[in-house]
């Protein structure tokens, strides 16, 4: 090897002025939005730090939320376990209900609907996504609450041998079940649109192969389209989950905030982290405010993790297509 004699050439790219300006503008925008994210996280950490220090791990594991008395006789005690569990329970109910609907709607739109139905229906779905969550909240509070209380009652009477369908008292309104149903409706558009996108990318040659073997349309969907879309669908579901975890106003309006870990989904007690912050924020003592900031940070990290995982899964599904 005589590579010592060889001098590697540096490749220089001369960029025009317009190109340089454009690059700067793009880079500034990108860095700005990323640093905003970092700033929010550090703001929450900074404001909530004291509470993390005072309560340590019990901030996550304790269900007690007490701002204490003004004279300091009753000490403040902050723990968000009940709210975290509530967030997860309502989000899981939401995704369990929304996912089958999303799959049906996506398959119908992509493979069965004639185009004069497909186009308006897709537009309507996008419109559903644009409805402000407070509207959902009011609708949930005034209409769904009473409607779904009846369903909850039936569920309870048929399935009360399953522990999470039991209730401590026969009150069925304002339960995690109802909040979950409302959230399901709210995350249906995003989940459907991701499902539709992955299903639409199912390889045509494999669908042809299924037809060529005497398969029906449903056979082709079951043997090709659905296995192909599985991982993308999981990603879509998690995107919906992230949204459901962070939802505030709608849950605040339909759910009874109770600081007790509640896994009985039909019982009239629950809450989630976001609605805790919304409820307590206006009348909080300065110290409690710090507790709410800390709760905000936990929620921020959880949704960030869920969304990042979802994006990863969706991208992987897209790339293998």
């Amino acid at each position: 090897m005589e590579s010592t004699d060889l001098k590697q050439r540096e490749i220089v790219i001369r960029r025009g002025l317009a190109d340089r300006i454009f690059r700067r503008a793009m880079a500034t925008g990108a860095i700005l939005s990323l640093s905003l994210l970092a700033l929010i996280a550090s703001f929450l950490l900074f404001r909530g730090f004291e509470v993390f220090r005072d309560f340590g791990f019990s901030f996550i594991t304790s269900a007690k939320w007490d701002s204490g008395s003004a004279d300091g006789v009753t000490p403040a005690s902050f723990g968000i376990a009940a709210m975290l569990v509530g967030s997860v329970v309502t989000a899981i109910i939401a995704i369990t209900v929304a996912l089958p609907f999303a799959i049906c709607v996506a398959l119908f739109l992509e493979y069965y609907a004639p185009s004069f139905i497909r186009k308006p229906l897709t537009a309507v779905l996008d419109l559903v996504a644009a409805i402000p969550s407070v509207i959902y909240g009011i609708w949930g509070y005034t209409i769904l609450n009473n409607l779904a209380a009846g369903w909850a009652k039936s569920l309870n009477s048929w399935f009360d041998w399953i522990w999470f369908f039991k209730v401590p008292a026969p009150i069925f309104t304002r339960s995690p079940f109802i909040a979950g149903l409302l959230l399901a409706l709210m995350i249906l558009p995003i989940t459907t649109s991701v499902a539709r996108e992955v299903y639409s990318q199912a390889p045509r040659d494999q669908i042809d192969a299924a037809y060529g073997l005497g398969g029906t349309k449903w056979g082709a969907i079951r043997s090709v389209v659905m296995p192909f879309g599985r991982s993308g669908l999981v990603g879509g579901a998690m995107l919906g989950l992230g949204r459901a975890l962070g939802e505030t106003v709608a849950v605040y309006l339909v759910l009874n905030l109770v600081f007790k870990i509640n896994l009985q989904i039909l019982a009239s007690a629950g809450g989630n982290v976001a609605s805790l912050i919304a409820t307590r924020f206006s009348e909080a003592t300065p110290y409690e405010l710090k507790g709410l900031m800390a709760a905000g940070l936990v929620l921020f990290l959880v949704t960030l993790a869920v969304n990042a995982t979802a994006t990863l899964i969706v991208n992987r599904a897209r790339n293998t297509a």
């Binding site: 390889p203 040659d205 494999q206 042809d208 192969a209 299924a210 060529g212 073997l213 005497g214 398969g215 029906t216 056979g219 082709a220 043997s223 090709v224 296995p227 192909f228």
Partner: peptide, 26 residues
């Protein structure tokens, strides 16, 4: 029966399942 230009076995199935996919689909 039909065989296509690009080999298109079902990627979610094993070799055996691919061969038996026809009777199952039909």
């Amino acid at each position: 029966g039909m065989v296509f230009q690009k080999p298109n076995p079902f990627p979610s199935m094993t070799i055996a399942e691919n061969v038996l996919a026809g009777p199952k689909l039909a």
